[in-house]
Protein backbone atom coordinates (compact mmCIF):
# COMPACT_ATOMS: atom_id res chain seq x y z
CA UNK A 1 0.00 0.00 0.00
CA UNK A 2 2.80 2.39 0.90
CA UNK A 3 4.33 1.83 -2.52
CA UNK A 4 1.14 2.88 -4.19
CA UNK A 5 0.88 6.11 -2.16
CA UNK A 6 4.50 6.99 -2.82
CA UNK A 7 4.12 6.71 -6.52
CA UNK A 8 0.82 8.59 -6.52
CA UNK A 9 2.57 11.48 -4.84
CA UNK A 10 5.24 11.55 -7.48
CA UNK A 11 3.04 13.01 -10.17
CA UNK A 12 -0.44 14.17 -11.02
CA UNK A 13 -1.93 10.91 -12.13
CA UNK A 14 -0.79 7.29 -12.37
CA UNK A 15 0.56 6.22 -15.73
CA UNK A 16 -1.96 4.19 -17.69
CA UNK A 17 -0.81 1.03 -19.40
CA UNK A 18 -2.70 -1.35 -21.66
CA UNK A 19 -1.31 -4.90 -21.61
CA UNK A 20 -2.28 -7.39 -24.30
CA UNK A 21 -1.23 -10.65 -25.88
CA UNK A 22 -1.20 -10.82 -29.66
CA UNK A 23 -0.85 -13.94 -31.78
CA UNK A 24 -2.02 -17.40 -30.80
CA UNK A 25 0.19 -18.41 -27.88
CA UNK A 26 -1.51 -18.79 -24.53
CA UNK A 27 1.49 -18.15 -22.28
CA UNK A 28 -0.01 -15.57 -19.95
CA UNK A 29 2.00 -16.25 -16.80
CA UNK A 30 4.43 -13.44 -17.51
CA UNK A 31 1.95 -10.77 -18.54
CA UNK A 32 -0.30 -11.46 -15.56
CA UNK A 33 2.64 -11.26 -13.15
CA UNK A 34 3.67 -7.97 -14.77
CA UNK A 35 0.07 -6.70 -14.55
CA UNK A 36 -0.10 -7.40 -10.82
CA UNK A 37 3.38 -6.04 -10.21
CA UNK A 38 2.70 -2.76 -12.01
CA UNK A 39 -0.63 -2.35 -10.26
CA UNK A 40 1.10 -2.79 -6.90
CA UNK A 41 3.52 -0.04 -7.91
CA UNK A 42 0.72 2.41 -8.59
CA UNK A 43 0.22 2.06 -12.33
CA UNK A 44 -3.26 1.95 -13.80
CA UNK A 45 -3.28 -1.39 -15.63
CA UNK A 46 -5.79 -2.49 -18.26
CA UNK A 47 -5.23 -6.12 -19.28
CA UNK A 48 -6.93 -6.82 -22.61
CA UNK A 49 -6.29 -10.57 -22.55
CA UNK A 50 -5.27 -13.30 -24.97
CA UNK A 51 -5.41 -13.55 -28.78
CA UNK A 52 -5.91 -9.84 -29.38
CA UNK A 53 -6.12 -8.62 -32.95
CA UNK A 54 -3.93 -5.55 -33.65
CA UNK A 55 -7.07 -3.49 -34.40
CA UNK A 56 -8.57 -4.33 -31.02
CA UNK A 57 -5.34 -3.44 -29.24
CA UNK A 58 -5.13 -0.06 -30.92
CA UNK A 59 -8.77 0.60 -30.07
CA UNK A 60 -8.12 -0.25 -26.41
CA UNK A 61 -5.14 2.14 -26.33
CA UNK A 62 -7.32 4.96 -27.68
CA UNK A 63 -10.32 4.19 -25.47
CA UNK A 64 -8.21 3.98 -22.34
CA UNK A 65 -6.16 7.07 -23.13
CA UNK A 66 -3.07 4.98 -22.39
CA UNK A 67 0.48 6.24 -21.92
CA UNK A 68 1.95 2.80 -22.56
CA UNK A 69 1.14 -0.32 -24.49
CA UNK A 70 2.74 -3.56 -23.30
CA UNK A 71 2.62 -6.48 -25.69
CA UNK A 72 3.50 -10.03 -24.70
CA UNK A 73 4.33 -12.65 -27.29
CA UNK A 74 6.15 -15.95 -26.86
CA UNK A 75 5.32 -17.73 -30.08
CA UNK A 76 8.13 -16.32 -32.19
CA UNK A 77 5.72 -14.56 -34.55
CA UNK A 78 6.70 -11.11 -33.25
CA UNK A 79 8.43 -10.00 -36.47
CA UNK A 80 5.24 -10.77 -38.41
CA UNK A 81 2.73 -9.25 -36.02
CA UNK A 82 4.47 -6.31 -34.32
CA UNK A 83 5.30 -4.23 -37.41
CA UNK A 84 1.61 -4.33 -38.37
CA UNK A 85 0.58 -3.24 -34.93
CA UNK A 86 3.06 -0.34 -34.88
CA UNK A 87 1.84 0.80 -38.29
CA UNK A 88 -1.72 0.72 -37.13
CA UNK A 89 -0.87 2.79 -34.04
CA UNK A 90 0.57 5.42 -36.33
CA UNK A 91 -2.37 5.41 -38.71
CA UNK A 92 -4.79 5.84 -35.84
CA UNK A 93 -2.89 8.82 -34.48
CA UNK A 94 -1.94 6.99 -31.31
CA UNK A 95 1.75 6.95 -32.18
CA UNK A 96 2.72 8.95 -29.10
CA UNK A 97 1.83 5.93 -26.97
CA UNK A 98 5.06 4.24 -25.95
CA UNK A 99 5.33 0.52 -26.65
CA UNK A 100 7.13 -2.15 -24.67
CA UNK A 101 7.37 -5.82 -25.57
CA UNK A 102 7.85 -8.87 -23.36
CA UNK A 103 8.58 -12.44 -24.37
CA UNK A 104 11.15 -14.56 -26.11
CA UNK A 105 12.74 -12.09 -28.51
CA UNK A 106 16.17 -12.91 -29.97
CA UNK A 107 18.82 -10.21 -29.66
CA UNK A 108 18.86 -9.49 -33.41
CA UNK A 109 15.12 -8.84 -33.38
CA UNK A 110 15.36 -6.55 -30.34
CA UNK A 111 17.35 -4.07 -32.41
CA UNK A 112 14.95 -4.29 -35.34
CA UNK A 113 12.00 -3.68 -33.04
CA UNK A 114 13.69 -0.66 -31.48
CA UNK A 115 14.26 0.78 -34.94
CA UNK A 116 10.56 0.30 -35.63
CA UNK A 117 9.76 2.39 -32.56
CA UNK A 118 9.48 -0.05 -29.67
CA UNK A 119 10.81 1.66 -26.53
CA UNK A 120 11.73 -1.38 -24.45
CA UNK A 121 12.02 -5.14 -24.80
CA UNK A 122 12.04 -7.40 -21.74
CA UNK A 123 12.99 -11.07 -21.73
CA UNK A 124 11.96 -13.85 -19.34
CA UNK A 125 13.11 -13.38 -15.77
CA UNK A 126 13.12 -9.56 -15.82
CA UNK A 127 12.50 -8.29 -12.28
CA UNK A 128 9.32 -6.20 -11.95
CA UNK A 129 11.40 -3.42 -10.38
CA UNK A 130 13.39 -3.07 -13.61
CA UNK A 131 10.22 -2.55 -15.62
CA UNK A 132 8.85 -0.07 -13.08
CA UNK A 133 12.06 1.93 -13.15
CA UNK A 134 12.09 1.87 -16.95
CA UNK A 135 8.53 3.20 -17.15
CA UNK A 136 9.09 5.92 -14.53
CA UNK A 137 12.23 7.18 -16.21
CA UNK A 138 10.36 7.61 -19.46
CA UNK A 139 7.06 9.04 -18.36
Amino acid sequence: MSLRLDSMNETDRPQRIVLAKIGLDGHDRGIKVVARGLRDHGFHVIYAGLWQAPEAVVQAVADEDADWLGISILSGAHMTLLPDLLNLLQQQGTENVKVMVGGIIPEADVQKLQQLGVTGVFGPGTPIEDIVEFLRERR
Binding site: L24, S75, M79, T80
Partner: peptide, 16 residues
Protein backbone atom coordinates in the same frame (compact mmCIF):
# COMPACT_ATOMS: atom_id res chain seq x y z
CA UNK B 1 -8.08 -25.80 -34.36
CA UNK B 2 -7.34 -23.26 -37.10
CA UNK B 3 -6.23 -23.96 -40.65
CA UNK B 4 -2.95 -22.60 -41.96
CA UNK B 5 -4.86 -20.19 -44.21
CA UNK B 6 -6.86 -18.63 -41.35
CA UNK B 7 -6.03 -14.94 -40.84
CA UNK B 8 -4.97 -15.55 -37.23
CA UNK B 9 -2.47 -18.20 -38.34
CA UNK B 10 -0.25 -15.70 -40.09
CA UNK B 11 3.34 -15.95 -38.86
CA UNK B 12 2.60 -19.03 -36.75
CA UNK B 13 2.40 -21.80 -39.37
CA UNK B 14 4.98 -24.51 -38.71
CA UNK B 15 6.76 -22.29 -36.20
CA UNK B 16 6.46 -24.03 -32.83
Amino acid sequence: GLDSDHYQSRGEVGRL
